[in-house]
């Protein structure tokens, strides 16, 4: 922590707030992952961590490293954009997988599948 000795307050205060807010949001998200009752409810919980949890922590890191290195540090943007773009793909696939399995078991909880287009006749 010695390298942080001469960090000015206007950098340290927002960075500290962002780090605390981001980690707390992530913790709340996983708390939801444990306490919520149905799978489709739990599907919403990790998005707390992947939206503002990630964004806040990365912003804080950009702020601190930007000040200590004396230039604009944009490394973190790559991680941020990457998380932003990949989360929808994983959650959408998981949601569809769950829907598919629940329909396969004939669960009454999920809505009906859309009518299948008529398959081409096999000769």
């Amino acid at each position: 922590m010695i390298w942080m000795q001469n960090l000015p307050l206007w950098v340290a205060l927002p960075a500290a707030l962002l780090v605390v807010a981001g980690s707390t949001l992530t913790l709340l998200g996983t708390l939801g992952l444990v306490t919520l009752k149905s799978f489709y409810d739990r599907l919403h919980a990790p998005t707390l961590g992947t939206s503002w949890g990630t964004a806040a922590i990365l912003l804080a890191s950009m702020l601190v490293f930007g000040w200590t290195e004396g230039r604009l540090v944009l490394h973190e943007l790559v991680i941020g954009i990457f998380v932003m773009v990949t989360t929808p793909v994983t959650l959408m696939l998981l949601g569809r997988a769950a829907l598919y399995r629940d329909r396969g078991e004939g669960s009454a909880e999920v809505p009906e599948a859309p009518p299948e287009p008529a398959p081409a006749e096999q000769p």
């Binding site: 922590m1 010695i2 942080m4 000795q5 001469n6 960090l7 000015p8 307050l9 950098v11 340290a12 205060l13 960075a15 500290a16 707030l17 780090v19 605390v20 981001g22 980690s23 707390t24 992530t26 913790l27 922590i57 601190v64």
Partner: peptide, 16 residues
């Protein structure tokens, strides 16, 4: 400021 950041980072590490 070092104490402030130390507190924030410790909290963050425990929370994560």
């Amino acid at each position: 400021t070092a104490t402030l950041m130390w507190g924030a980072l410790t909290w963050a590490q425990f929370a994560l």
